[in-house]
C-alpha cells in the first residue's frame, strides 16, 4: 500500500473537484489530504466519502494569498515530517506553478498534466500527453521519493464508487512560509466569472469565421444557456477577436470538457491537438471539407450565424421543458 498525499486547491473554502477525480483512482492506498487555509463542511464530507484518512490544514497568516515560494516552503516543511510515496495536485494555475519548485527542493521528480492514472499494488501507472496531445507517453518516476504528480482536471472523471472513511482533521500551525521574495500586490479579476477553460465541463469556441469580437456575443448567449465557458481558436485570437486567455490549442490551453462546440473553426492541427480529448465534439462550419469534421461526433455544415442562435433556442426548449 502506497502512502499518498493530495494537495487540495480551494476556491472560497471549496475543494476543487480534480482532487476527487484523483481519489477515485487511489482506492486501496492510504490517502491523506492537505490544504492551506480552511475548507468547508461539504468538502470535508466529500473527502471522507472518497477515502481520505486524514485532512491536514496548514494555518499561516503569510499564506492568505497564493505565493509560489511560500506554498512550496510550507508544504515542504510539512512533508519533511512525513513519509509519503506520492504527492498529487491538480494541474491548475497553482498546482502547475509550485509543484515543480517543491519537487526540486527534495531533488525529486515531478510529472505534470497526467491524464491517465492507475495503481497496481503500490506501483503507479501514468500517461501524459506530449505535443499538446498529438502523442501520449508512459511515465516512470525514477527520482527519490516523494514523487510529485499533477493531474489534468476533467481528464479522469468523477470516481465511480465511494470509499467512505472517517478522517481525522489535523490543524498545522508550524509550517513555515519562509522568506517571500515575489509578492502579490493586487489581483485583477478577469472579465468572465465562469469556470476556467481547463476546468470547464462544456466549452463553446469561436474561430476566424466569427469575423469580429462583437459577434462572440452569440457564443456567450449559447454558453449562458448550457453553462459553458467560451473559448477561441488561435486564428480568432491572432485576429484580435478574443484575448489569449481564451485560446484553445497547442499555443493556448489544452482542454478536455464533456462537450466541445466548435463554431467556425476549420481545425488546424494545433487546435485539434488542444481539444481532441473532449468527450463529445460538435462542429459547425460552412466548409464541408473542414478538418474539424474529422474529429466531430456531430457535424453541422452551415452558416454559424444562422445555426448558433437556433441551437441556443433549441437548448432553451429542452432545458426548460
Amino acid at each position: 500500500m502506497a502512502n499518498i498525499l493530495i494537495f487540495l486547491e480551494t476556491n472560497n473554502q471549496k475543494v476543487k473537484p480534480v482532487a476527487y477525480e484523483i481519489m477515485g483512482k487511489l482506492q486501496g492506498q492510504n490517502i491523506e489530504t492537505l490544504a492551506i487555509g480552511s475548507i468547508d463542511e461539504d468538502s470535508k464530507n466529500n473527502l471522507m466519502k472518497f477515502g481520505a484518512s486524514k485532512i491536514h490544514l496548514i494555518q499561516n497568516d503569510q499564506l492568505k494569498d497564493y505565493n509560489p515560494e511560500g506554498y512550496s516552503n510550507a508544504v515542504a516543511s510539512f512533508l519533511k515530517n512525513h513519509s509519503f510515496d506520492y504527492v498529487f495536485a491538480g494541474a491548475t494555475a497553482i498546482g502547475k506553478d509550485f509543484f515543480p519548485r517543491l519537487s526540486a527542493s527534495f531533488e525529486s521528480g515531478c510529472a505534470s498534466d497526467i491524464t491517465h492514472l492507475s495503481f497496481e499494488g503500490d506501483q503507479l501507472h501514468a500517461v501524459r500527453p506530449f505535443f499538446a496531445g498529438k502523442c501520449l507517453a508512459k511515465v516512470e518516476m525514477t527520482g527519490p521519493k516523494p514523487h510529485f504528480i499533477t493531474v489534468r482536471p476533467n481528464s479522469i472523471g468523477a470516481p465511480e464508487k465511494e470509499n467512505p472513511q472517517s478522517a481525522e482533521i489535523n490543524e498545522i500551525n508550524d509550517a513555515q512560509a519562509g522568506d517571500l521574495r515575489a509578492i502579490i500586490k493586487e489581483v485583477i479579476q478577469g472579465a468572465s466569472n465562469k469556470v476556467d477553460l481547463t476546468e470547464a465541463n462544456i466549452i463553446v469556441s469561436g474561430g476566424r469565421a466569427m469575423k469580429n469580437s462583437e459577434n462572440f456575443k452569440i457564443l456567450d448567449e449559447l454558453a449562458d444557456v448550457i453553462g459553458a465557458t467560451v473559448g477561441a481558436s488561435r486564428a480568432a485570437v491572432d485576429s484580435g477577436y478574443a484575448p489569449h486567455a481564451m485560446q484553445v490549442g497547442q499555443t493556448g490551453k489544452t482542454v478536455s470538457p464533456t462537450l466541445y462546440i466548435a463554431c467556425g473553426i476549420s481545425g488546424a492541427i494545433q487546435h485539434l491537438a488542444g481539444m481532441r480529448t473532449s468527450k463529445v465534439i460538435v462542429a459547425i462550419n460552412s466548409d464541408p471539407d473542414a478538418p474539424i469534421f474529422s474529429k466531430a461526433d456531430y457535424g453541422i455544415v452551415g452558416d454559424l450565424f444562422e445555426i448558433v442562435p437556433m441551437l441556443t433556442e433549441e437548448f432553451k426548449k429542452i432545458l426548460n421543458g
Binding site: G109, C110, A111, C135, E140, S294, E306, I307
Partner: peptide
C-alpha cells in the same frame, strides 16, 4: 527524475454524424 517511454498515438475516434444545413429548412431539422 522522470522517464518518458512508450510514445504512442492517441486512439482515433470513429467517424461522426454529419448534417447538411445550408438551407434554412435543413438547418432547423439538423
Amino acid at each position: 527524475k522522470v522517464k518518458y517511454f512508450d510514445f504512442h498515438l492517441p486512439p482515433e475516434k470513429p467517424a461522426g454524424k454529419k448534417f447538411e444545413a445550408t438551407e434554412k429548412a435543413d438547418a432547423e431539422k439538423a
